[in-house]
Design a protein around this nucleic acid. Structure first.
Length: 413
RNA sequence: CGGGGCAUCGUAUAUUGGUAGUACGCUUGGUUUGGGACCAUGUAGGCUGAGUUCGAUUCUCAGUGCCCCGACCA
């Protein structure tokens, strides 16, 4: 992508009503735009990051047998009345059409997937079954805040699993848990994301959250010093020992909840009477698990965690581009041609390049590169050519090195 | 939902009960080119409604919006 053609430009100033680090940096760099409180547009750079995150999640979901689907965001009222959540859930957006028909904007999809599965699955032979989607959710947050961390409209991956018995649910739950660990490792948050015991509601003792350490977090978690699994505030009040290893020495830290997984058992299959025939021809109620993970919140979390005073520092796996190619030219030099050649070369190698071909000062290009936070910065200038090539600098490092143009591709892959 | 704060060109800000100014951005022309360069040029603004007043962007009230603290958050 040529930066001269990129839809958004960076700003020098941040809107004064933004305080959170992720909102400030993402808006300043032109990744997102705020339409209203907790409602954002994803602009070209931001959308690329969001999609990278989504694709990492997809890959892992597919690995554990999830089939991707896409359910509607508009939900007829009667489905929500069946579970009692039309009145119970106070952050449900409710709308009415001209005929007076009432609908909800989906905040989660148990009410939709259960009837859907009921319609297509009648036999134990089709169970277990796993389906997931990545979709926009709506929740009427009374106080949305902190940029992408708590929105009223946000992206969410929700996986639902269907089982014949609890043992099968348990087994799959463990698989899903592991797949979440893989996801956070791949996204670059692995080391600071703790598996966290949370309340299991009325049907199981525990559920699990995935909590990423950050001062911007709303949650307080208690990390077991022995096994580094954490427990949340709620659980901390109920137990003195780590449910994982029995340790009793904890460290308190603030964290952002980036994922949660629940054993729903028959909480939703029962009200909808979701049953299949077993081997004996008897009807059995299916039991369920659900597994949530918010790509947009993850994106905000990454920014909160990886930044410095100059801007964002994207992990390679989710960066909008791998290389920020910068040309520094003067009127007499042939830099333009050199930079063009390198741009084409890198692209033909399948490397994602943001090419700063704009006619502005070097300082401004460097400042933008630091702000946008692409992992590799490659500078082409008279100075670099004179000493044999291009200058390569990693965003998270102070030093740069001269690399021969012919060796550039191997250097950055 | 309780409490607090804020509202002026696209962005950030200043001033004022009497012609609203500056910087950045953007236009055009020129000089520049290794850490947000310079000269010239043009561009655009008082959240909405009511009240007080000869006159309101400024004072009062209401509304709306945004931010923060708290509560809430399968």
């Amino acid at each position: 992508m040529r930066q001269s053609e990129l839809f958004t430009k960076t700003k020098k100033e941040v809107p004064k009503d933004e305080v959170s680090v992720n909102a400030q940096l993402l808006i300043k760099a032109g990744f997102i735009d705020k339409l209203a409180a907790g409602i954002y547009s994803f602009l070209p750079l931001g959308l690329r990051v969001l999609k990278k995150i989504e694709n990492i999640i997809r890959e892992e979901m597919n690995t554990i047998g999830g089939q991707e689907i896409l359910m509607p965001a508009l939900h007829p009222k009667d489905l929500w009345e069946k579970t009692g959540r039309w009145d119970m859930m106070d952050d449900l957006y409710k709308i009415k059409d001209v005929s007076g028909k009432e609908l909800a904007l989906g905040p989660t999809h148990e009410e939709i997937i259960v009837p859907l599965v009921q319609k297509y699955i009648q036999s134990y032979k089709d169970i277990p079954f796993y389906a997931y989607q990545i979709q926009t959710k709506f929740r009427m947050e009374l106080r949305s805040k902190s940029g992408l961390l708590r929105g009223r409209e946000f992206s969410m991956k929700d996986l639902y699993s269907f089982h014949l018995d609890e043992k099968d649910l348990e087994d799959y739950y463990e698989k899903a848990k592991n797949s979440y660990v893989n996801i956070f490792n791949k996204i670059g948050l692995g080391k600071i994301t703790h598996l966290t015991f949370a309340s299991g509601g009325s049907f199981s003792k525990y559920s699990h959250e995935f909590q990423t350490l950050s001062e911007a977090g709303e949650d307080l978690i208690h990390i077991c010093k022995k096994c580094s699994v954490a427990i949340n505030e709620e659980i901390k009040g109920e137990t003195k020992e780590c449910p994982e290893c029995g340790g009793d020495d904890f460290e308190e830290k603030k964290a952002i909840e980036v994922g949660n997984i629940f054993k729903l058992k028959d909480k939703f299959s029962k009200p909808f009477d979701l049953k299949v025939k077993n081997e004996k021809g008897e009807e059995v109620t299916l039991i369920m698990g659900c597994y949530g993970l918010g790509p947009s919140r993850v994106m905000g979390t990454i920014v909160e965690v990886y930044n410095d005073d100059k801007g964002m520092i994207w992990p390679q796996s989710v960066a909008p581009y791998q290389v920020h190619l910068i040309e520094i030219k003067n009127q007499k030099s042939k830099i333009k041609n050199e930079a063009e050649d390198i741009y084409n070369k890198l692209q033909s190698e399948g490397i994602e390049v943001l090419y700063d071909d704009r006619d502005i000062s070097a300082g401004e290009k460097f400042a933008d590169a630091d702000l946008i936070g692409i992992p590799y910065r490659v500078v082409v200038s008279d100075k670099s050519l004179k000493v044999g090539g291009v200058e390569v600098k990693k965003r998270d490092s102070e030093k740069s090195e001269i690399v021969k143009t012919s060796e550039l591709v191997s250097k950055i892959t």
